[in-house]
Amino acid sequence: MKKPAGFDRYLALAERFLARGRVPALLFAVARKSARLKLVKADLRLLQELALATVRGQYRQLNPRALLAVVAALLYFLSPLDMIPDWLPGVGLLDDLAVLAWVVRHWQVELDAFKVWRDAQSREIRQSLALLPGPERPSRG
């Protein structure tokens, strides 16, 4: 399966999100949008948990390129104006689903390793991964 067209732009954006510590805000926004989608909810949740555990420093075995691809896919999913605008009824999310499917398939070994790690963790850690961060609030001067 080939890398989706236009995905490189999101890889560059993902680098900036990671460098600026903006992944928690991204995860919150993705959770809000994904609440309406039943079809890919499990894959989205897995990608969110993986990103969260990695940026928290809990999970350290992830290939940095895999993290970059996961964050880029979440950014692509969140973007309303991508290859097919999300507001087009019936087809607007097809490209988003294709990008998510590509990332899941391309990084399947990494995702499987994360699932093994996650399932071996204490109940508290598993619960903390299920509780995605809330929206970031701007600090007051």
Rank of each mutant, 00 (worst) to 15 (best):
A14R: 01
K3F: 00
R32T: 12
A51V: 13
F17I: 12
R20G: 13
R16C: 10
N63R: 14
P85E: 07
F28D: 05
Q58V: 12
G92E: 11
K33Y: 01
E49K: 15
R60Q: 14
P138E: 15
A72K: 03
V99P: 03
L74T: 15
F7L: 08
W87Y: 11
I84Q: 01
R140M: 09
E136G: 14
L46V: 05
F77S: 07
V103L: 07
F28Y: 13
A113P: 04
F7Y: 10
E110A: 14
L47F: 03
L44K: 06
F77I: 03
A35F: 11
D8K: 06
S122I: 00
L62Y: 13
A101S: 14
F114A: 07
M83N: 04
P24T: 08
R126I: 12
A31D: 11
K33S: 04
A19G: 13
D82I: 00
P24E: 05
A101G: 15
G21I: 00
S128P: 05
Y59F: 12
L52M: 10
V30M: 08
A25T: 02
L132T: 13
A5F: 11
V71Q: 00
P80V: 07
A101M: 10
P135R: 07
D82F: 12
D112T: 11
R16Y: 04
R9L: 06
